[in-house]
Write a protein that binds this DNA or RNA. Structure first.
Length: 473
RNA sequence: GUCCCGUUCAUCUAGAGGCCUAGGAUAUCGCCCUUUCACGGCGAGUACAGGGGUUCGACUCCCCUACGGGACGCCA
């Protein structure tokens, strides 16, 4: 039997990191076993499902490289099939009509909560038939009484739940639409899903689903409930923890390789290995190695991985990805040095593409103003003389390249009998406006001779103004 | 409240009864490299939730407690 897994999100929002990891695990499992990965959109909640959300989910999966072999299948397109199954359950006594009002159910729930018991439907309509069978009603699955259901979970092991804990759940609403627990069972059955890998929050649903499957005479798939992802403070992951949407990570300048690598290591590990290529994940991943405990999302480790992949990736490719981030800052990289060269210079200095764009702005436009601390420290009157000398040296260069620039700076330092730092650091601040940049030679080279001289003049004016100010006091 | 699940450094994790003086990674701090920032190298501190058993021996097995998470919907 070939392995068939699925990812079945409900389109009520964006693809978030928790869903993405579940999808990744399902995808890896299918790929590892040479099986199929199916995408199914669970859109039976007509109120909350939106086409925008469907697009967001598809976009997120595409970006992460989680390709599916079948689908997307939409549950809203399968209502006839669900009706058929519901009728079948009705016919063989595994389901019944329920005419209880919402008010009655709410009241029942409250009473039971007050009595400190688990809220459950009391089976009222099972015993009392309505006068008019066509009056508005829902359809309930008739859950077995007594005994217990064993969920043989690949991650949790054997989980037993007593049938007395389960009540007769609604499988069709008053408006005729089927509910989740019914559709998921029918779909997994029809789509021949062999392994249901999903979030831990569904563990409680498994026994009810197994009961429905039994009533249908179908075999249950193998279940694997993966633990949830929590925020960095250990509480349920939410927007207040920062980015939760997969696409937001792209906007913030993360590479899909980094996010995938981060996600695969959350709740799963293979010895001490931290870096995994997709092929390695496929060959090494195993459900048996997935942890039972929930894990906290840690952005700092994600950033480390992102930097790792930025360093490892071909600069030309990084440049392509960086371009839109430059654009967001109002910079057109075609009006300046080759972006690929800029990437090479910055590759080891940025955790994200967004950050790389930020620290690369000065290659393309003059800085707005000096970084205060850097200017205060480096653009002092004592820096004036070396700065004037270096300006002369740079201005006289007829060949503008890293080697000639290097020699020029070196010679000035030697002539003044000072360390390189005394010359290079004020020069850096003069040219880039702040204290940090790539190597001084490559920086000057990429900024260009004309812009360098212009900015040095600006720094000299700054130093002079400051000297006058000091003298005046 | 009831039921289900979980608990190793701040965080992700290794650990399948003696290999554990509990290993790796991120983060933090220090040193080295260095014209800055990074990268890289080296090093430091930091954990088996608590209590009972079982055993010659428990991070590993069992029980209880505490804490955390999930479910209890005409949501999925």
């Amino acid at each position: 039997m070939t392995v068939r897994t699925r990812f079945a999100p409900s389109p009520t929002g964006y693809l978030h990191v928790g869903g993405a990891r579940t999808a990744l695990f399902s995808w890896l499992y299918a790929r590892k076993h040479g099986g199929q990965f199916v995408l199914r959109i669970e859109d039976t909640d007509l109120e909350r499902s939106t086409p925008e959300s469907v697009n967001a989910i598809l976009e997120g999966m595409t970006w992460l490289g989680l390709d599916y072999d079948e689908g997307p299948f939409y549950q809203t397109a399968r209502f006839d099939r669900y009706d058929e199954i519901i009728q079948q359950l009705l016919d063989n006594g595994h389901a019944y009509r329920c005419y209880c009002s919402k008010e009655r159910l709410d009241e029942l729930r409250e009473t039971q909560m007050a009595a400190k018991t688990k809220p459950r439907y009391d089976g009222h309509c099972l015993k009392n038939k309505a006068d008019d069978p066509d009056a508005p009603h829902v359809i309930r699955f008739r859950n077995p009484v007594g005994g217990s259901v064993i969920v043989n979970d690949l991650i949790r092991g054997k989980v037993a739940i007593s049938n007395d804990e389960l009540d007769d759940l609604i499988i069709r609403r008053t408006d005729g639409s089927p509910t989740y627990n019914l559709t998921v069972v029918v779909d997994d059955m029809d789509m021949n899903i062999t392994h249901v890998i999903r979030g831990d929050d569904h563990l409680n649903n498994a026994p009810r689903q197994i009961n429905i499957l039994n009533a249908l005479g179908a075999e249950a798939p193998v279940y694997a409930h993966v633990p949830m992802i929590l925020g960095d403070d250990g509480s349920r992951l939410s927007k207040r923890h920062g980015a939760v949407s997969v696409m937001q990570y792209r906007e913030e300048g993360f590479l899909p390789e980094a996010l995938i690598n981060y996600l695969v290591r959350l709740g799963w590990s293979h010895g001490d290995q931290e870096i995994f290529s997709i092929d390695e994940m496929i060959s090494l991943f195993d459900i048996d190695d997935v942890n039972k405990a929930p894990s906290s999302f840690n952005t700092e480790k994600l950033e480390w991985l992102n930097q790792h992949y930025i360093k490892e990736t071909d600069p030309a490719h990084i440049a392509t990805l960086l371009r839109p981030h430059m654009g967001k800052l109002g910079i057109d990289p075609s009006e300046g040095p080759d972006l690929v060269e800029v990437v090479k210079a910055q590759q080891e200095r940025a955790n994200t593409l967004e950050e790389m764009a930020d620290i690369s702005q000065f290659f393309y436009k003059d800085y707005d103003e000096f970084d205060e601390k850097a200017a205060k420290k480096n653009l002092r009157p004592v820096a004036a003389e070396p700065m004037i000398k270096i300006r002369e040296a740079l201005a006289s260069l007829s060949e503008w390249n890293e080697a000639t620039i290097h020699t020029a700076i070196h010679d000035v330092a030697a002539a003044l009998d000072v360390k390189m730092g005394k010359v290079a650091q004020p020069l850096r601040v003069a040219v880039v406006g702040r204290a940090a940049s790539p190597g001084i030679d490559i920086t000057l080279f990429l900024v260009g001779q004309e812009a360098c001289l212009r900015r040095i003049d600006r720094a000299l004016a700054y130093i002079e103004a400051r000297a006058n100010e000091t003298a005046a006091n």
